[in-house]
Structure formats: structure tokens, C-alpha cells
């Protein structure tokens, strides 16, 4: 599904990704954890073309990202920390915009699926609201529905709950959990360790631009091998 081989990315002098390689299979849920500045977000952003990698190979569903231009990204959706909803459009408008403009769907088709998606994220009654009228948790659920409206095979989540008030985190995680059960391939950058442990098939631990551990959640959370991971987890857990 996703195959990365020795990818490197620097911002000027700063090496953000260093020889990162991994494979993700269809239907897998991967959580990416690690200290800030370790390259987690850059990794996701490189996958979907928001950052251009300096070297290495990246295949999405067998298509090389570099050669295909846009094609490889078409099957991916992304959810941002800051939601990035279109403020001048209603919730419904946010959901149907890309299907109509990019996929050429009719308004009727797009609306029908948008209704289903809003039902799924529990926001049917908000379809005529503008983003500014929603809570953070509601905004993020709309953002998830908007990404799903393009029917992606792969969903990328870049710290989807980091800018939410603590009491709103749960509703967003519930929606993401629901997707995991639907067999959508997902990669999630998160600081929610409990969630990562429950929902993931595998967990990547990143540090200084490298994936230093790629293993099942039990191994990382219950029995971490490296001292670096132990320290990180102790720190994170003591904050919560």
C-alpha cells in the first residue's frame, strides 16, 4: 500500500528525515509517536506531497510519487492538527466542494454521500453551520468527513487531537476508531498513547528523523526495549 525506501528530507541544514524506510499493508493502522521535532509530521506531509523529499523512493499503491506527479496522492486523504476547514463554506459546502470540483460529481451525488458521512461522524444537524460556529471537536469531525468524501484508500492524521480541549478529544478519537474497524489504511501521528495502543496494528517510534522502532503496540508500551522510548513514555505519561 505504502512503501518508503531510504527517504531523506532536509530544511536547509536541518535533516528532518534520515533514511526512513517502511512498508504499510492494506488495512493497517499505524501510529507514529515520538518527541516533537522528530520528523513525524514531515513524514506524513511527504507522503501526500506537501513536502518534497530530497532523496529516496516512495510508492503509493505501487505508483512512484515522484514520477506520477499527482496521481499517487489521489487515493490519500489528510486531516490536520488545525482542521483547515474552508471558513466561507458551510459544513455541507466543505464536504461537497472537492467531489464536485475535482471528481466532477453532480451536486446530488456529492450531497448524498456527504449526508451519510455527516451521519457517521454524528453531525447531521450541523450541515448548514459555518465552521466558526462549531467546537474544535466538531470541526475536526467535519475535517475527517471532508477527507472521506473523496473516498481515499489511505487516511493520514497529523496530530488530529493536539489542538483540542481535553474534553473534546474523545469524540474525535471515537470517529477515528470507527474508521479503523472499517479497514481503511491509516497513519496517525499522535500524542494520545492510550489511543495509539488500542487502535494500532503497529507503532513507529521516531527520534531525530529516524524510525527507531517499528513494532506491535504491546512491545512498545508494555515492554519497551530501548531506554530512549522508556524515557519518552515516562515523560508523556507523567504529563497526563
Amino acid at each position: 500500500m505504502i512503501k518508503a525506501k531510504n527517504i531523506n528530507k532536509s530544511f536547509g541544514e536541518l535533516e528532518v528525515l534520515r533514511d526512513v524506510s517502511f512498508d504499510v499493508q492494506q488495512g493497517e493502522v499505524i501510529s507514529i509517536i515520538g518527541p516533537s521535532g522528530s520528523g513525524k509530521s514531515t513524514l506524513l506531509r511527504s507522503l501526500i506531497g506537501l513536502e518534497e523529499i530530497n532523496s529516496g523512493k516512495l510508492f503509493i499503491e505501487g505508483i512512484s510519487v515522484k514520477k506520477s506527479g499527482k496521481k499517487a496522492y489521489e487515493k490519500m486523504g489528510m486531516v490536520f492538527q488545525g482542521f483547515n476547514l474552508f471558513p466561507h463554506k458551510t459544513v455541507m459546502g466543505n464536504l461537497i466542494e472537492a467531489p464536485i470540483v475535482v471528481k466532477g460529481e453532480t451536486k446530488g451525488e456529492a450531497k448524498k454521500r456527504a449526508e451519510e458521512l455527516l451521519n457517521k461522524v454524528g453531525l447531521t444537524d450541523k450541515k448548514d453551520s459555518y465552521p466558526a460556529q462549531l467546537s474544535g471537536g466538531q470541526k475536526q469531525r467535519v475535517a475527517i468527513a471532508r477527507a472521506l468524501a473523496m473516498e481515499p484508500d489511505i487516511m493520514l492524521f497529523d496530530e488530529p487531537t493536539s489542538s483540542l480541549d481535553p474534553e473534546l478529544v474523545g469524540e474525535v478519537l471515537t470517529v477515528i476508531r470507527g474508521l479503523a474497524d472499517e479497514n481503511i489504511t491509516m497513519m496517525i501521528v499522535t500524542h494520545e498513547m492510550g489511543f495509539a495502543k488500542d487502535v494500532s496494528d503497529r507503532v513507529f517510534f521516531m527520534d531525530h528523523g529516524k524510525i527507531i522502532s517499528d513494532t506491535v503496540p504491546e512491545k512498545i508500551f508494555v515492554n519497551p526495549e530501548s531506554e530512549r522510548i522508556q524515557n519518552f513514555l515516562t515523560k508523556i505519561l507523567s504529563q497526563n
Binding site: I48, G49, L50, K70, Y73, E74, M76, G77, M78, F80, G82, N84, L85, F86, P87, H88, E97, A98, V101, V102, K103, R146, A147, M150
Partner: peptide, 25 residues
């Protein structure tokens, strides 16, 4: 930038992004 990024990951090209997302705002 978030607006450009959101439009991009939804598959919109530059013209669509400007005319439908950026200029109306």
C-alpha cells in the same frame, strides 16, 4: 497556508484553489 494545503490534499489544482477557496475568502 493551511487553506492551500487543505485544497491540495483534496486534489484541487492552483486555479481551483484560487478561484474557489482563496479569492472568495
Amino acid at each position: 497556508d493551511g487553506q492551500y494545503e487543505a485544497a491540495k490534499v483534496l486534489g484541487m489544482n492552483y486555479r481551483q484553489t484560487m478561484s474557489r477557496i482563496i479569492i472568495p475568502q
